[in-house]
């Protein structure tokens, strides 16, 4: 357990010490959201209708584009090889990294979402629903993202490949995330979407560290005959 916590502490320290990454990601999230009115016109009614979708797309993009920094620096300085020889299982190291990824790339977005809510004229009820759906859905995004990063870490220029691989798998998260905000088939469906979203997040958190650990271990070593 101390090993698990020390991975979290180290990565948090690395993420916030320079301050660069977290702030850049936050800025990207806000700019994507703020650029939409230029594309669709400053019609308040339209904007407030599409605001939850815009917030989700912005969060989706910023979380997928920040994936490469998850394992690549560790690969380049040799830490990843040592993780494989650590007392702590590799899957636990990855689980710790998923938590850090959520803390540094999802939580800041949720904290910043009121700003987008204001400029996109979201009403208060919708805003709270958006925050709820982001809280429930982003853990799954972080977990799938870690899997995508693990699959592509062995590729020298894997930067853009991970988002391409992972985006189709994340469609259900987006669907249920929006389902929580704008329940189409009545409030019952909203609750259903919320439960599905929570189930997806739990399942992703529980399973993807193992898949990612396999991908990293086998991506570095040769298959025995």
């Amino acid at each position: 357990m101390t090993g698990f916590l020390s991975v979290i502490r180290r990565d948090l320290r690395l993420a916030f010490a320079g301050g660069g990454d977290v702030l850049t990601l936050l800025l990207f999230f806000i700019i994507v959201g703020a650029i939409v009115p230029f594309a669709v016109g400053p019609d308040q009614e339209l904007l407030s209708r599409i605001a939850p979708g815009v917030v989700w797309i912005a969060a989706f993009l910023s979380m997928l584009l920040g994936l490469d920094r998850l394992f690549r620096p560790d690969l380049e300085d040799g830490t990843l090889a040592l993780y494989r020889l650590a007392d702590l299982p590799l899957s636990a190291v990855i689980a710790a990294k998923v938590i850090v990824q959520w803390l540094t790339s999802a939580l800041p977005l949720i904290v910043a979402s009121p700003f987008l809510a204001v400029i996109l004229t979201m009403d208060l009820d919708t805003f709270w629903r958006t925050v709820l759906s982001l809280l429930l859905g982003t853990p799954a995004l972080a977990a799938f993202g870690a899997f995508g990063a693990a699959v592509t870490v062995a590729i020298r220029r894997g930067g853009l490949l991970a988002p391409i691989l992972i985006a189709p798998l994340c469609v259900p998260i987006l669907i249920f995330g929006i389902g929580v905000i704008a329940p189409l088939g009545g409030p019952g469906q909203g609750t259903a979407a919320m439960l599905f979203l929570a189930a997806l997040s739990l399942m992703a958190l529980a399973l993807t560290p193992f898949a990612a650990a396999l991908a990293i271990a086998w991506g570095r070593s040769r298959a025995p005959p």
Partner: peptide, 13 residues
């Protein structure tokens, strides 16, 4: 050979 195992994991996921 390395690709095969990684693609296999991704295919199963």
């Amino acid at each position: 050979l390395k690709a095969a195992r990684i693609v296999a994991i991704f295919t199963l996921v």
